[in-house]
Design a protein around this nucleic acid. Structure first.
Lengths: 211, 211
DNA sequence: ACCTGAACACCGTTCAAGT
DNA sequence: ACCTGAACACCGTTCAAGT
């Protein structure tokens, strides 16, 4: 075929197809040949638009981060409310693409949406009265909690089979029931943690102000 | 060579070599051929001891979890102190093997050390007076925070290059300085989050008791 | 500029053959 | 039981050749 008059591919189309493939079949299913086939093209064609597979996965992660709502950080004084709804939006974006989460470990690099996110959170906290150093910490620790809550299900991790727990694990006698209530447990654990974290941060800000 | 009189390999030796290889060069460096070479053996030999590469990575993760101290959950009433030192030990184990963390996403499966960990935390919380349902949530949310704080550095994720932030990110004017203070920032964010979480959980337990 | 087939140096895994 | 070489169906990436 050689060069077509109108390009068959674009970076965006490749990234969108890759995200769909990760969602459907997981990170391991994304090979350059497989992805190219999905796009109706030969394997090496992708290299006209992306330098490496790593760059592709980076772009996929960034696309997911682009779904996070940041509009709540517009300088109001209610940092708690902003952090809370941001955390839910962030988690929802990751929960919509759970198989992408392990790829988050690469750090934010130069991904524009990752940086936009960090910028908004930091700016919002500082505008609401948090000292800059502390705002950095709060941004980090919120990210820890949110990404951790998306890195694989807690409840879903327990095998469904009562025999696994016999004998060795005295406190896990009912653990085989967890998988069935997976969504409810993960959700309520996230909400409980979010509330605890925000309550704790209110105490922290108050004690910073006294000193 | 065929079968040697004394086995050359054992599951443990393979897992230990794999962990060392992940630590040194990352998850991607672990191929069956490469790992076998490291062990002085041909590639397919590994399959006499492990069914698949996935099973190998599972065992590597479990070996790391085996380094987490659980001795603090021995039934005392000080759940806060126990949770705090457990969280530090857990984080230290993951921080010692940061490149293993993305593999944690597979859930706990049948990994004995993962189950032992869940068992100890849940048992300790129940013994200290937490209702069983709540203890499940607390175990989950603590895991979220700890694994999230180990899934890649926050501070280290920011490029070292001031030019990256020019213009687009009004609040990240000093973000290029973060990488240099990476360890300090990640550490203090973890400690700040841990304190906030535990403060928040104290409030939560108190409010459960009132109702 | 953008797509292609061929090629290189790899993968995970299976299996018959050896002791 | 445990190790081997050969083989299968894959990988990511490069590159010269085509338009």
């Amino acid at each position: 075929m050689a060069r077509p008059s109108r390009p068959l591919l674009s970076r965006e189309r490749i990234v969108a197809a890759a995200l769909a493939l990760v969602d459907a079949e997981g990170l391991d299913a994304v090979s350059t040949r497989r992805l190219a086939a999905e796009l109706g093209v030969a394997g090496p064609s992708l290299y006209n638009h992306l330098a490496t597979k790593d760059e592709l996965l980076d772009a996929v992660v960034d696309a997911v981060l682009g779904e996070v709502d940041l509009s709540m950080f517009t300088g109001g004084p209610d940092w708690r409310g902003a952090l809370e709804s941001w955390a839910r939006s962030y988690r929802a974006a990751l929960a919509a693409h759970p198989r992408v989460v392990p790829a988050l470990s690469q750090g934010m690099g130069r991904r524009p949406n990752a940086l936009r996110l960090a910028d908004a959170v930091f700016g919002g906290l500082v505008a609401a009265g948090w000292p800059r150093r502390e705002a950095t910490r709060v941004g980090a620790l919120m990210r820890y909690f949110i990404t951790g809550s998306s890195l694989g299900s807690f409840a879903g991790g327990f095998p469904d089979d009562a025999a696994v727990y016999q004998g060795d694990y005295p406190n896990l006698g009912e653990a085989h029931l967890l998988a069935a209530r997976q969504r409810e447990i993960d959700e309520s654990a996230f909400e409980a943690g979010l509330t605890a974290l925000l309550d704790g941060l209110e105490l922290r800000l108050a004690s910073l102000r006294i000193r």
